[in-house]
Design a protein around this nucleic acid. Structure first.
Lengths: 151, 151
DNA sequence: ACTATATTGTTTGTATTACAAACTTTTTAG
DNA sequence: CTAAAAAGTTTGTAATACAAACAATATAGT
């Protein structure tokens, strides 16, 4: 009877599958909506999120994002065209680039981050402090025991 | 310091935002991977999921999925071309169709559903029965207080 | 040093997804 | 009975994603 659907009719007696799947859609929709406000897709948000504390090569980006390397070219191209990231030539390997956020990229990911923070907080507003702590603990427990998500 | 990234480095001290965002990516990756095995995208899984207990019109589908009606045409077209769904003319409104799963569609969504069930169960395997119940309760609490996700 | 192989990233071609605006057909309202 | 609304489709555009082929550089083996 599970739904694989973020429709919000009849929430009675959710199974583990339903509750997690629907919750994931709620979160993803938050990310998508905030992204839209900044003309960013979820994948672009993830790209910028990675670049907050790294300057990875194209290949490392591909691994981080779980995409083929050929997908990264266009992703970075578009972000670069918008002035959000830049390629810097690697001095150790003249084939490769490192990708890093520009100041404009930093600015936008900072804003997006704050909005995500606010929206997620809003969504969990109905929980008590204890419940929130429980949720973090449970999610973390799942995450640590979950083998690498991006392959 | 949150990541908006499903990379699995340093899980120490996750915030609410991080834990929920990363958890959502874990779930979405499960859906995507299982979909890939059946040559289905997440949106196609959702389409078939909806059709398990409904025969909506194109417009109702658009609302359920949170997409523009023009996006539904192609989505249904492709599923129909694969023999997974069919359009049935509405007798009440000669402009409209109802979309329903074919036996092949039922079969595939059933299989996909079982796999999703198994994978999600696997991911929550580290939790005790009580923790599982807690997680369902917490997710449900969030879901009921979250206003319509698909507009 | 030199050749063979591997690696990094781009290009090309294809398919899906998604939207917006314009359009067709049918329905409903006045 | 005509004007407006509604249901879907079409058209055009863009982003996303992959796979295979390719260019340039790096590395290994001899």
């Amino acid at each position: 009877m599970s739904n694989y659907d973020d429709s919000f009719d009849k929430l009675e007696e959710l199974s583990m599958v339903d509750s997690l799947v629907q919750l994931s859609f709620v979160i993803q929709n938050i990310l998508a909506k905030i992204g839209t406000q900044h003309d960013l897709s979820i994948i672009q948000i993830r790209l910028l999120g990675i670049l907050r504390d790294r300057e990875p090569s194209m290949l490392q980006l591909a691994k981080h994002l779980g995409l083929d390397k050929s997908s990264i070219t266009g992703l970075v191209d578009r972000a670069q065209r918008r002035g959000l990231v830049e390629r810097t030539v690697s001095q150790s390997d003249r084939r490769g680039f490192n990708v890093r956020a520009t100041p404009a990229g930093w600015k936008i990911i900072h804003e997006v981050g704050e909005q995500i923070e606010r929206q997620i907080t809003l969504v969990t507003e109905g929980l008590t402090g204890e419940e929130r702590a429980q949720l973090i603990a449970l999610a973390s427990k799942i995450l640590v025991t979950t083998p690498g998500v991006s392959r």
